[in-house]
Amino acid sequence: MGYGYLAIAIVFEVIATMALKASDGFSHAISSTVCVIGYAVAFYFLSLVLKTVPVGVAYAIWSGMGIVLIGLLSAVFFKQIPDLAAVIGIVLILAGVIVINVFSTAANQ
């Protein structure tokens, strides 16, 4: 169940981060509210994850997938197109998350 909670935490963290950008420095009430609630839900589910998944593994996956998803969504919604170096960096982060999940014994503890 820990990895299911981790997926929920990642989704809400991504929603909250996108809302943070849209809030324009917390000057828009709706996106600011979505941001605060999204982060609260994300951290709640992350706390549940840490009951069963090692903190280093959980945080690596949470932050790595957040970076990848936010990079993709910010290109679509905010027209913030990454340059080649950013794309390579994002691909390497995604590769790291895959390596942790496929090859690490710590991910299965």
Rank of each mutant, 00 (worst) to 15 (best):
residue 46 L to S: 04
residue 14 V to I: 02
residue 14 V to N: 02
residue 46 L to Q: 05
residue 59 Y to Q: 09
residue 50 L to E: 03
residue 39 Y to H: 11
residue 71 G to A: 09
residue 107 A to R: 01
residue 108 N to E: 15
residue 19 A to W: 00
residue 97 V to E: 04
residue 76 V to N: 03
residue 7 A to N: 09
residue 105 T to G: 15
residue 89 G to D: 04
residue 108 N to S: 15
residue 76 V to C: 06
residue 47 S to D: 05
residue 20 L to R: 09
residue 69 L to P: 08
residue 55 V to M: 14
residue 25 G to S: 04
residue 64 G to E: 00
residue 106 A to Y: 08
residue 18 M to C: 07
residue 25 G to C: 04
residue 105 T to W: 10
residue 106 A to H: 12
residue 57 V to H: 04
residue 105 T to P: 09
residue 38 G to N: 08
residue 88 I to E: 13
residue 85 A to P: 05
residue 5 Y to Q: 03
residue 7 A to L: 14
residue 19 A to F: 00
residue 71 G to F: 10
residue 67 I to V: 11
residue 21 K to I: 11
residue 109 Q to K: 14
residue 74 S to V: 06
residue 53 V to Y: 02
residue 33 T to H: 03
residue 88 I to Y: 11
residue 39 Y to I: 02
residue 49 V to M: 06
residue 23 S to R: 00
residue 3 Y to S: 06
residue 71 G to K: 07
residue 91 V to E: 01
residue 42 A to V: 04
residue 103 F to Q: 13
residue 72 L to S: 11
residue 34 V to L: 07
residue 96 G to Q: 07
residue 68 V to F: 11
residue 53 V to S: 01
residue 20 L to V: 12
residue 73 L to K: 01
residue 109 Q to Y: 12
residue 57 V to I: 13
residue 26 F to K: 03
residue 14 V to G: 02
residue 87 V to F: 11
residue 41 V to N: 02
residue 52 T to C: 09
residue 43 F to Y: 13
residue 79 K to R: 13
residue 13 E to G: 14
residue 25 G to N: 05
residue 49 V to A: 03
residue 40 A to M: 08
residue 24 D to G: 14
residue 4 G to L: 15
residue 97 V to A: 09
residue 76 V to E: 05
residue 16 A to M: 00
residue 97 V to T: 09
residue 2 G to H: 06
residue 97 V to M: 10
residue 93 I to H: 01
residue 12 F to A: 11
residue 60 A to S: 14
residue 34 V to W: 02
residue 17 T to E: 03
residue 79 K to F: 08
residue 78 F to T: 02
residue 85 A to G: 11
residue 99 V to C: 15
residue 75 A to V: 08
residue 95 A to Y: 05
residue 96 G to W: 09
residue 29 A to G: 07
residue 1 M to T: 15
residue 5 Y to P: 11
residue 54 P to S: 11
residue 90 I to C: 12
residue 42 A to C: 06
residue 90 I to R: 05
residue 19 A to D: 02
residue 59 Y to V: 15
residue 24 D to E: 15
residue 82 P to S: 09
